[in-house]
Amino acid sequence: MLIKFYSSTIGKKVVVALTGIVLLLFVIGHMAGNLKAFGGYDDKGVHKLDSYAIFLRDFASDVLGHSGFLWTMRAVLLVCLLVHVFTVIQLQRINSSGRGSRYAVVNPSSATVASRTMFIGGLVLLAYTVYHILHMTVGVVHFGGFVEGRVYANVYRAFTLSYVTFIYVAAMGFLGLHTYHGVWSLFQTLGLNTPDRHFVFINLARLLAVVLFFGFISVPLAVYFNLLPPPNVAAGVAG
């Protein structure tokens, strides 16, 4: 039954929507977590961002073990991301074959930049995600003195570099577009959209896109324009 469902175009779209929801919830959480960068230091001299990282690592460790929650989340997200990407690539193939030949003149009426860049933008975000993990989690492409666990310091050092700030801001532009079309689409794809609710869903999509975009770029820009204090190198070793 599930295989048959997945083999249909609608089934695939539903899978994209559902995995999209998981990824969206993660992104919202991530963005909220990032804002801890504005939190400053606690009385022990540990930056709020760093203590948040510790909190994530230790969360439910009595049940899941050391970093268990973090790794469970990572596994779930990875699976969702792979399924999301894999299904989208399948759909994209069906779609480009469905179009057949191209029109000489294209004059879209309602398609938006967001809707037309879902696939390309998605690929950009995928590439960005890989970069971002290597940059901020693994640290191999950090090039600013990456120290495991010193999240705030890593962030701060990263965004003093213009090209990094630019990459992040640009990627968040794509994330905003992807979110806008993705969120309104998922209500349509899951069949929740009706003419009465359309107004709510489309505006929710707009709101989320805007909040995510500004939420995410606020940290890099704040660092870049020297609006945040430099990391306190001496204090609070996380690890």
Partner: peptide, 15 residues
């Protein structure tokens, strides 16, 4: 049947 005819899927452009 619709899928079998070679039509594409919906990406909610609204065109």
């Amino acid at each position: 049947g619709m899928d079998a005819q070679g039509f594409g899927a919906c990406t909610n452009h609204g065109e």
